[in-house]
Write a protein that binds this DNA or RNA. Structure first.
Lengths: 343, 343
DNA sequence: TTGTAGGCGTTATCAA
DNA sequence: TTGATAACGCCTACAA
């Protein structure tokens, strides 16, 4: 069935298409009278403008896209909420685009930029290893949000907002050491991770070293590739293995809260108590870490600040107020029930 | 900066645009030779077709959209994963569109249908109270997934897949009663909810009645409108109030697992033990209900079945194999650590 | 204040 | 197997 178009409306109203277009888009050059009349006809006939046609014609539509890799991550939920609010406050519209783990976020971005005439892009999650040449196909500003980048990527080429994953991870492990723990297990990303996973791992190693504790590879457990990354199940399975390996440890640091929760479950299943038998710590500071029993000691990322700053930088970039910028927020060590001193 | 178009590619290759279009879209009438040549040029020049133009021109693009209201709901995550898989298996592409709580999902759907030339739509979550007249503007088939509808909406007018929220809620409360509980608190949706919230509430009432237990309004607590619906925080706040009200109860049934977890936290804060002091039950069967400590007794919805059947019905509708269908799956009472018998 | 006409980048039709 | 050309539905100079 053929959809009703702007021409049909124009005919029904006995006016030209331009006039109808003006009515739709709140253009000034139109009398209130005709506008009201047109809007009424549009309503009566359920006319809905075709977005594809609009996007095709429009040079730039005030819209920002947020590309998010791995939507299951609870940590992103709050971020997105703030993004949406901030973007709407600026009278821009907001598109949330999920990117599959196996998809290339950059390709999606390039396509979306053309399709929607984007003005800016926020990348959330993932590793973001891309050739510069390909990045250059993006002609609008973009900001990487909470995507830890290793040094081999030139910081002059992009903007980012995040916490210092190395430092914050160090902070947690340092804390555990200060509580008397010397055998600290780590649930980390897979070894080929070059993003936050790697940084948090390095922070762990450095803290151990600074406390004169020898690094024990047997205590480091990587997430399973065949399970959803950063999932509770992943933490559960990996911890079960750790327990079966007979490696001794008194504390366990998981590089995300969800992994930590999975770890707790595995510990409970083995009849252990937290924190009496094992201290468990997470990272991110998602709501669940507070609601869990015991509540989880974690590193809380300042979500609101991160989100607001991301948008601020993006708009500054759009308005050419700044060149590439990197903002690093401090995160907070939140000590809760899941860890204890053993000294 | 002007983007490179199909015409540019055609010129560079010394062929017509049609030929380029054929190469891109895998049309048969083109020699492998020219096709390979064209694809190479496209690659070298990073040409990306403009989707708006394609959608504008195309009569029907094999794509299905899933509209989801309230993406924070963990229960939907698994559903979405299955949807994506099933849809891709059928060689269709998949669009996930988030709809804000305050937005009208139907309006979004109508617009999206035109913009993307959709072939079908899945609605997830929300209440779905819409005038028939407006629904008729949707010209492609759609299926309501886990959206409980009350009777005043003609079942011949739409298709749906869900569990029997009334019956399953009844099942849980019946179970609690059989465990000797007679003072059972309920955390429910707001009173003007006409969807699953209402159905689960009715199931609660019916089970009490069947056990000869008088309904006590003071034991029913509605989610706060000013907090995110079905959030842990909502469950937490509401349970705190309940505790302060001095209403006596031995069991608490929350109409979602997340609410139940919030409730547990409030109980723990008050120095109570679960299930020794209070039994707590949830609904949905999300992963978290298993990982929580204590693990939460819940009603597990058969997520995979629901998702698969939704897609099956949608495609049957698309291929005109069936008229409107309603599929109701049984859910499973999963008894775990958070509830106990007190008789 | 209003209308006409051309073009946005593709795909589909039809003729070569 | 190819290519010119007409839509697709809308916006916007420009003219009236």
């Amino acid at each position: 069935m053929a959809s009703i178009t702007i021409i049909d409306i124009a005919k029904m109203c006995g006016v030209g298409v331009t006039t109808v277009s003006r009515a739709i888009n709140n253009h000034p050059d139109i009398s209130d009278e005709t506008k009201a009349m047109i809007m009424q006809v549009i309503k009566d006939n359920h006319y809905v403008p075709n977005n594809s046609a609009r996007n095709l014609k429009r040079s730039a539509s005030k819209t920002i896209a947020v590309l998010i890799k791995g939507i299951t991550n609870a940590f992103f939920n709050k971020l997105i909420q703030v993004f949406e609010q901030e973007i709407k406050d600026k009278k821009y519209s907001f598109i949330l685009q999920r990117v599959d783990d196996k998809e290339d976020e950059l390709e999606v971005a390039i396509e979306l930029e053309k399709e929607k005439r984007l003005r800016g892009i926020v990348f959330l999650g993932g590793y973001f290893v891309h050739a510069k040449e390909k990045l250059d196909q993006l002609t609008v500003p973009y900001v990487l949000c909470t995507i830890g980048m290793t040094e081999d990527f030139d910081r002059k080429e992009y903007s980012s907002v995040s916490v210092d994953d190395f430092k914050e991870s160090y902070k947690m492990v340092d804390y555990l050491c200060n509580q008397g723990h010397r055998k600290i297990a780590l649930i980390s990303a897979s070894m080929d991770d070059v993003s936050i996973g790697k940084l948090r791992f390095e922070g762990y190693k450095k803290a151990l070293a600074d406390h004169g504790i020898e690094f024990n590879e047997g205590l480091v457990r990587c997430m399973k590739d065949d399970l959803e990354s950063y999932s509770m199940k992943n933490g559960y399975v990996v911890t079960k293995e750790l327990l079966e390996s007979d490696e001794e440890f008194t504390a366990l640091f998981a590089i995300s809260d969800s992994l930590a929760i999975g770890a707790c479950k595995a510990l409970f299943d083995a009849g252990k108590k937290i924190p009496e038998d094992y201290s468990v710590a997470g990272f991110d500071g998602v709501d669940m870490s507070y609601y869990y029993n015991p509540s989880i000691t974690t590193i809380r990322q300042p979500v609101e600040n991160i989100a607001e700053e991301t948008i601020k930088i993006l708009f500054d970039l759009i308005h050419k107020k700044i060149t590439h910028t990197h903002k690093v927020f401090p995160a907070e060590l939140v000590i809760r029930e899941s860890t204890r001193s053993i000294s």
